[in-house]
Design a protein around this nucleic acid. Structure first.
Lengths: 219, 219
DNA sequence: TAGACAACCGACCGGTCGGTCGGAAGGTTG
DNA sequence: CAACCTTCCGACCGACCGGTCGGTTGTCTA
């Protein structure tokens, strides 16, 4: 029946969009199904027709975001170039992906560190965990190649991955606090550009004027 | 009345300890007062005798942790030495503080990025925000001094602060995911030592074998 | 001894939680 | 036409939510 809005997306998509926004802002237990349904312009029972339950909906939201990150990671990494070029392109891709949708960083961060929250056994949640694992293994492989080729200093790969998450994801997830610190929106084009520069300067040169050639050898 | 346990701490402390553990694990809205009270070995009404409400309890927990970080920051920073020495000592202090109590990183991270969750107007919550602000201003001052003295490369101070939080706090807050990545507890002495090395290697030398003297000049 | 007070409790409040159920409406297929 | 399917809804469920209230107990002070 002709709705006012001709573009009328799928209910499923509308629900996912609304849920992404709310879950990102307040977390899994901070949002109720009623509020979720209302934000999606549907009744609670209508919502539950599309998703078996709240945890499945959350997993679907997380999965959608994680697949986007994996897609962009593969694009960036599999294009040509040496390890440094590919890594640099990957950094750009991650910053783009995080910056173009303010909800993504928060939801990604939550998926990582709230994992143990009701660590579910459902199929959907296992799929989310597997996507995370795959995503990180792509980057781990790139780091390993770079180290073997003598482009990157030898370092613990898991720790480097953790550092990258910290530098990239946390920043864009830091919300009000980050905006107070920067005195502007985290997502304004200028702020994103500056973050890109800051991260690359740190990763590629450290913070010191006279870099120490790391007394600490890799282990 | 002679309890079995002679050390019997204050109820208030017991509540704070239990709340710290639970809030860190599942967040503000993921824990109920009943569960909180039971974990502290007291009734819900008993708990509410000590704290006016759930948000005040949360603020008290966050405040206690933030004060610990501020104390250790001031200790590390105000002892002698040039900017590099003081910064290096501060890094050690932060890693020690994060590592010696697994709940701290998670709660600190939540205090930062869940700030907007019911951004309360109560006195206690304002005090928490002020402590965070003070804490970061101490470090900002140190960075500024280091840059003026030519020890640190010129860089955006807010972005450097964000990077430090990302490198330090996120790692220790990453829970199950981090442990899967490292294949060991995040808090085992060896893992903590390794994190310290990884962070310092990154900060002091970057990730490249042939560091680029940052094409990107500071802004 | 009386009074005040802090610490604590069980019972209870209105409201919300995630989830179920029995349909209603509309489209498609035979 | 009937049979079926998808989409969506309101009414309802038991459990739990944060918070209040009246009362008991024990300790400390006047």
């Amino acid at each position: 029946m002709a709705e006012v809005n001709a573009l009328e997306l799928d209910s499923r998509e509308k629900i996912l969009d609304a849920a992404e926004k709310l879950f990102a802002r307040r977390g899994f237990s901070g949002v109720g199904l009623r509020e979720l349904a209302e934000a999606a312009g549907i009744s609670k029972s209508g919502l539950l027709h599309h998703f078996r339950g709240k945890t499945e909906l959350y997993a679907a939201v997380a999965g959608r975001i994680l697949h986007e990150f994996e897609k962009r990671t593969l694009q960036a990494i599999s294009a040509g170039g040496d390890a440094f070029e590919r890594f640099d392109r990957w950094l750009d891709a991650m910053i783009d992906t995080l910056a173009e949708q303010p909800t993504r960083a928060r939801l990604l961060l939550r998926s990582l560190f709230e994992d143990d929250d009701l660590a579910g056994e459902s199929e959907e949640e296992k799929a989310v965990d597997q996507t995370i694992e795959r995503l990180f293994s792509h980057v781990a492989r790139l780091l390993r190649e770079g180290m073997e080729q003598g482009v990157f200093r030898l370092a613990s790969i898991p720790h480097t991955l953790q550092s990258l998450v910290g530098l990239l994801v946390y920043h864009f997830a830091s919300g009000e606090f980050g905006e107070t610190l920067l005195r502007q929106s985290l997502f304004a084009p200028a702020a994103v550009r500056k973050r890109r520069e800051a991260v690359k300067a740190l990763l590629y040169g450290g913070i010191l004027v006279r870099p120490q050639v790391a007394a600490v050898q890799a282990t």
